[in-house]
Amino acid sequence: MDISLRINGEECALSVPASRTLLEALRDDMALTGAKNACNQGVCGSCTVLVDGMPVNACLVLAVNVTGRDITTIEGLGEGGELSVVQQAFVDAGAIQCGFCMSGMIVSATAFLAHNPMPSRDEIRTALSGNLCRCSGYVRVFDAVALAAQRLSP
């Protein structure tokens, strides 16, 4: 099926089978491999992307069902080759261990901070509850989100 959608601000026309998930389309058709495929069941959050600004599990969304939508992946967060504030905060806080879950964590955190710029620690935990880190390095991740919130505050 022929579909068109915006990915990281760019209009894209794709031809995909109806059963192809957004995650597969991003990774295999668009070579945007930042969103990761781990559980393929909507449990781990490593495939998190934004659809019209809302975080979703790209593995649970069919590409044909997001025609006309605005998709943002980890690749679309920075500008002009620079990391976004949230990305830089993850680096500075030492939040990254093996890195596999990071794109999902950062995309979730970005969407969350856009809605809740001054979150409590508990709110950060809840917002990232759909992102599993099997290195179990959550403490630095929460530190990173708090740091990003601080840097983003006016």
Binding site: G42, M54, P55, N57, V61, G130
Partner: peptide, 9 residues
């Protein structure tokens, strides 16, 4: 229900 990502879908 589940997590933010799933509740959005």
């Amino acid at each position: 229900i589940a997590h933010p990502q799933v509740r959005n879908i």
